[in-house]
Nucleic acid binder design. Sequence first.
DNA 1: CCCTACTATGAAAACGATTACACACATATG
DNA 2: CATATGTGTGTAATCGTTTTCATAGTAGGG
Lengths: 344, 344
Amino acid sequence: MSLRMGIMVKAISMTGVLVVKMKDVAELAGVSSAAVSRYLNGGYISADKAERIKHAIELTGYVRSSQARALRTGSTKLIGVIVPKINSESVSRITAGIGQVLGRRGYQMLLANTDNAADRELEYLDLFQNHPVDGIVLVATMITDEHRRAIESCRVPIVLIGQHVEGAACVYHDDYEAAFELGHALAGRLDGKIAYIGVTDEDRAAGFDRRRGFEAGLRAAGNPLDAALIRLGSFTLDSGYGAARELLSVAPDVSFIACATDTMAAGALRAIDEVRGMGEGIHRVSGFGDNAFLRALTGGIPTVHYGYLTSGVEATNMLLNTLDGEEGESGLKTLKLGHQLMNV
Amino acid sequence: MSLRMGIMVKAISMTGVLVVKMKDVAELAGVSSAAVSRYLNGGYISADKAERIKHAIELTGYVRSSQARALRTGSTKLIGVIVPKINSESVSRITAGIGQVLGRRGYQMLLANTDNAADRELEYLDLFQNHPVDGIVLVATMITDEHRRAIESCRVPIVLIGQHVEGAACVYHDDYEAAFELGHALAGRLDGKIAYIGVTDEDRAAGFDRRRGFEAGLRAAGNPLDAALIRLGSFTLDSGYGAARELLSVAPDVSFIACATDTMAAGALRAIDEVRGMGEGIHRVSGFGDNAFLRALTGGIPTVHYGYLTSGVEATNMLLNTLDGEEGESGLKTLKLGHQLMNV
DNA sequence: CCCTACTATGAAAACGATTACACACATATG
DNA sequence: CATATGTGTGTAATCGTTTTCATAGTAGGG
């Protein structure tokens, strides 16, 4: 039987847009819609029918409704990505990595930006698992008990980036070890007082681990950190600037300020420049994250390079592997990525 | 009739997850599912039934399936956002603005990152309009004829950010005017040769308009730009660095390098520092975009401040207004945002 | 030649909401 | 009093797929 071509009749949908549905394709090809579905999804179909269906699809420009498919199969091919702040270099690098893998493997990214509000994080976690997404990537900062509970009871697979949480799938960096190495290395070549600008301990990785690791590293090198010279920032450049100004006025003899992030280090650098003269700060701060701008503009302060893009890639692959049920053993697990000391 | 409470019976879905559907809620409340739907969507419903339904929903923890809803209504409450590169300050700021509005108005963001590949842009445009999204925000760079055609024939409302395209809804900045002002202002206080590192003219706004505006501004101030001192970068820090190194070696008497973006300016700055000594570059470059890092680390080079976040906000509001059919007149249109010269 | 096993196929039943329709009652309008 | 008009409600159709089920032909193994 050859294709019955003729005036093409198209239905007008609710929204007034021309649509071709599977039934139309089926009729044009002279088969049942089940056959078309099988053709599309790789079920049993004879060669000649496959050919006819292929033609009919090309002819009509048919594309299947992802919404109907989603309803029937329960899978949306959407991955929810929750980030604390989209406009930060580290996060946007992670997101780039996630997007790369997602695109390559036929998924799309539903992005939720919490703007550093932990409750919004929980809210999205809730919203996401309740339907539209097949899986979740959570770029985590603070992990409260409530978080743990939400993650535990999550109905779709979830992978964390940036924090190590027992019992959950995580891709993270060893912040303690990295900070230890940085502290140890710096202690050797520094004289004078060292200060530290960190972030809240509630952020286990960037707060607690980095500070404790740095302290331990200094101590191990015989140059312990004076607790009075520790300040708390909030990830922003301004907070780093403010904390540094305060430190410099309270303890003018501070000779080096280590920071928990490169962004805050940039602020501290600016503060030192203002107080001690331009260009002075560059040799007096360290950071975390190896920010490209900072590197270019300063020639490189001591910092720790993390493969942010890689962590996005790895986490997403891990998640998608479990979703696509590929080779059973590559499922959700915990993955610690390496780091690299820069400019020490 | 009071609520019939008792052992709650839950169905097990395909995926093995416990689910409550509208029918369950309806039965528990002793009404039809149509009534529940009306309650949820604000149709006619008597006070007592509303109360009973409310209880039943709370009791069961019911949440409606967005997939079924999407299939029936044709609306997903999803907005597709296409960006050229997520890990860049300007784009991530725009994205933050988009996300803010989307969240506030009950939509979610489907993010597509094209990684500066124009064909991927078209691909996504195609993918998006073909189903899952209700509208599109395109953070545009290059607008080819193919783009114009795709935008024209787009089945869902679309708003462009960053480029001005006739016949399409756009939120953009007046790059020509801004560049003119910057060039004019700089020409007045500069002596010696001025060079320019731009980007491709295919990017009308950041390429063509900025370069032409800058040229015109210099000319108007009686200090025209030597065409031999124009180079092309590719938005990256490294490309700015490379172009600047080349310029400095070919024309060692260049005294100022204006750049089409702050990121490239950072690269140029680094190049000047290397060639002429640390700290020298800061007074010898200008950019576009008012990057926060660059501002903090240099104290501020001449640049143009754009309200990137605002453009995201405005574009999204515009799009959502047409989607939600609010007050007819606030629909899709063209909106030119202001700018601000910095440090001149 | 009988019994499995595999390939093909279409009809029809899901998936879980929204909504057109039909009906009922109330109140207002002429 | 007849006729609109506005509420309130349930039944059933619908959105466009995927998938179960029933059925059949075709080989292959014994």
